[in-house]
Computed example of a mutant assay.
Amino acid sequence: MAYVVLVLLTRKPDLSPEQFKEHFENNHLPLVKSLFGPLCPVPHRRLYLARADNKSGDASRALYPPLMLKGNPEDINFDCISELSWKDEKTFKGFKQMMKQPELMANIAADLELFVEVERVVVIGEVVDSLPRGWD
């Protein structure tokens, strides 16, 4: 059974959503792939929140409120949901074991420091992909 982890990432306050995404996609992910190789999560989906246009050019987080259909934009304090999947818990444990290498983690931490203010990580217990009976 797949082992799934969600990571909620909040960008640095001086970065625009575009700058955050650009660094994550073009710098951080290639770094992680180079360090972890075959133990990297597959698939690794990134869900970036839709944000209101900011015409001022100021990267302040408050100037990029999330596009909400319901709820309060101030309650959303993250910019990306990153869904990491491994084929099973054993593969994830290999990944986690590699994370204990100080030099490897120092490289990851140094890069995160460039674009992430807060990182939250949670393990997903069950994934249900189908619609409830009668919805299809």
Score class of each variant (00 low, 15 high):
94 G>A: 04
13 P>M: 04
96 K>I: 10
102 P>M: 06
129 D>K: 11
30 P>N: 10
22 E>F: 09
72 N>W: 12
40 C>K: 04
15 L>Q: 07
17 P>M: 09
87 K>A: 14
12 K>F: 10
17 P>R: 04
70 K>Q: 15
128 V>R: 12
55 K>M: 14
57 G>N: 01
50 A>V: 11
99 M>L: 10
44 H>N: 12
41 P>G: 01
87 K>V: 12
14 D>I: 12
3 Y>W: 10
23 H>E: 08
92 F>P: 00
3 Y>I: 08
75 D>I: 04
95 F>L: 02
135 W>G: 09
80 C>A: 08
2 A>E: 06
113 E>R: 11
88 D>T: 05
135 W>V: 13
35 L>N: 02
78 F>G: 05
103 E>I: 12
45 R>V: 15
113 E>P: 08
104 L>R: 04
35 L>S: 00
39 L>F: 14
58 D>I: 10
24 F>H: 13
57 G>Q: 03
8 L>W: 06
116 V>H: 05
130 S>C: 15
64 Y>R: 04
31 L>C: 02
128 V>W: 12
39 L>R: 11
48 Y>S: 09
2 A>C: 11
62 A>N: 13
27 N>R: 15
131 L>C: 08
111 D>E: 02
43 P>E: 01
67 L>D: 01
65 P>V: 05
127 V>W: 06
73 P>V: 03
102 P>H: 08
95 F>E: 05
110 A>S: 14
44 H>F: 13
117 E>H: 06
67 L>R: 05
32 V>G: 03
86 W>A: 00
103 E>L: 14
122 V>S: 13
